[in-house]
């Protein structure tokens, strides 16, 4: 069982691995996944996507409609922050949001989301919210290992009004970051169905 490898010197930073999706490809995939789910995209995003099919434009459009920004550090700690998208829902309708993942440790684990209603006794999982990261053909809830990844998050709240929920993300047991950094609190504005415009 003896096997000695010689020293190897490397003078360049780790190169991107060719088979991993680029950010633009990941953005395209998440849009395709939303369409496959027949999820109504926000009107502003739909307009942008209709205006240009250029990969960079698609990426920029997706970036602007990201609800959650996840950063996984080299120690595989998962940090979460709210993104630029407006957290607007239509009551009773399942709607898509994007999650941007900056994956600095190349993890390929499953990205999981948990929801907590801080206003409930014992901080329970809210029964008024459905939330999941889509895991379907063509769009996995597992991380690709690419430095930038996008995931599709589907949300539904039945009743109109304002509802705040704590969303936590992890990439496996014990990976959620410390000191509230693994969670973010999102205040959803839930419109009545008949009051809702066709998009955001």
């Amino acid at each position: 069982m003896t096997h000695a490898l010689p020293f190897v010197c490397f003078f360049v930073a780790a190169a991107p691995v060719s088979e991993l999706p680029t950010p633009a490809e990941s953005a395209r995939r998440v849009v395709d996944a939303a369409k496959a789910e027949k999820a109504p995209l926000p009107e502003e995003l739909s307009v942008k996507l209709a205006a240009s099919d250029d990969p960079r434009d698609v990426w920029l459009a997706v970036a602007a409609h990201t609800l959650i920004e996840v950063e996984i550090n080299p120690e595989m700690r998962v940090k979460v922050a709210a993104g630029p998208a407006k957290p607007t829902l239509t009551a009773g309708r399942t709607m898509p949001f994007f999650v941007r993942v900056e994956n600095r440790c190349g993890a390929t684990a499953r990205l999981a989301v948990t929801a907590t209603d801080l206003a409930s006794n014992n901080a329970e999982t809210p029964d008024w919210l459905d939330v999941e990261i889509v895991n379907a053909k063509g769009h996995s809830d597992r991380l690709s290992g690419a430095p930038i990844d996008y995931k599709l998050l589907m949300c539904r709240i039945a009743e109109p009004g304002r509802r705040e929920v704590r969303l936590g993300f992890d990439a496996g047991q014990g990976t959620q970051d410390l000191g509230f950094r693994g969670v973010t609190d999102i205040l959803f504005h839930v419109r009545k169905e008949d009051a809702a415009p066709s998009g955001d």
Partner: peptide
């Protein structure tokens, strides 16, 4: 609205 207020207070 009680839910988002109590969440904020928590």
């Amino acid at each position: 609205e009680r839910q988002p207020l109590l969440s904020q207070v928590t």
